[in-house]
Amino acid sequence: MKAYWIAHVDVTDPEQYTEYTRRAPAVFARYGGRLLARGGRAEALEGRATPQRNVVIEFDSYDQALACYRSAEYQEARGHREGAAQAEVIIVEGLSG
């Protein structure tokens, strides 16, 4: 079953955050991740206010998505996000069939 990496991000240092956005997509691709949404228009209809950025990445499996997040390559890229953004990241398994 496919899995989805969903991130809600509020950027506090756009210049530093750019370094993260430069590096992370290559890591996602190495693990078969496909960016479905990255930034763009969004509106909160229920719950908390809309974060500045919403990101959805599709993976072929839950294990692939976790492996990507836990990889040394992603953790190195993630280091460039430290101090530049507040992020919530979840991985959710898709529906079967």
Rank of each mutant, 00 (worst) to 15 (best):
E15Q: 13
C68N: 07
V89T: 13
T50L: 01
A26E: 15
C68L: 06
R41F: 05
C68M: 15
V27F: 04
C68S: 12
T21H: 05
I90S: 10
D10I: 07
W5K: 09
Q16V: 06
A77P: 01
D63N: 09
Y74G: 04
Q75E: 07
Q75L: 14
P25A: 14
D13E: 11
V11E: 02
F28R: 01
D13Y: 07
I91A: 07
E43K: 13
R23F: 00
R53F: 03
G97I: 11
R34M: 06
R34F: 00
I6L: 13
R53Q: 11
T50F: 00
P25S: 13
E73G: 05
G79P: 05
A7L: 04
E58Q: 15
E43R: 13
G79D: 06
D63I: 01
A24W: 01
D60F: 03
Y4P: 06
R23G: 03
Y74W: 07
Y69S: 05
D60E: 15
T50G: 00
E19G: 04
Y62I: 09
E58C: 14
T18S: 11
Y69P: 08
R22G: 01
V11Y: 02
S96G: 10
R34P: 00
Y69E: 01
A87W: 02
G79F: 06
V92T: 12
G97M: 09
V11D: 02
D63H: 07
A87Y: 03
Q16F: 00
A26N: 11
M1T: 12
Q52P: 09
G40I: 12
Y20K: 03
I57G: 03
G33C: 09
A77Q: 02
R23W: 00
Y17L: 06
S96Y: 00
R34Q: 13
E76Y: 08
S71W: 03
R23S: 04
S61G: 10
L66F: 03
S61V: 09
R34G: 06
R23C: 07
P51C: 12
Y20C: 04
Y20T: 01
T18E: 14
K2W: 00
G94P: 06
R41D: 09
E43L: 14
R53W: 01
Y62A: 09
A87L: 12
G39K: 08
G39Y: 01
Y4S: 06
I91Y: 02
A29W: 01
E15I: 12
T18V: 08
V55H: 00
E73V: 03
I57V: 15
L95R: 11
I57M: 07
P25Y: 10
G94N: 08
P51L: 11
E82S: 14
E82F: 14
G32E: 07
N54Y: 00
Y69N: 08
A42F: 02
V55M: 03
A24S: 15
Y69Q: 07
G33V: 05
Y20A: 02
S61R: 08
Q75S: 05
T12C: 04
E43A: 13
C68V: 04
D63L: 08
R78E: 07
A26V: 13
S61P: 10
A3V: 02
R53C: 02
R78A: 14
R38M: 06
E88F: 07
Y17E: 04
R41L: 10
R41S: 12
A87S: 15
E19D: 13
V89E: 06
V9E: 02
L45D: 01
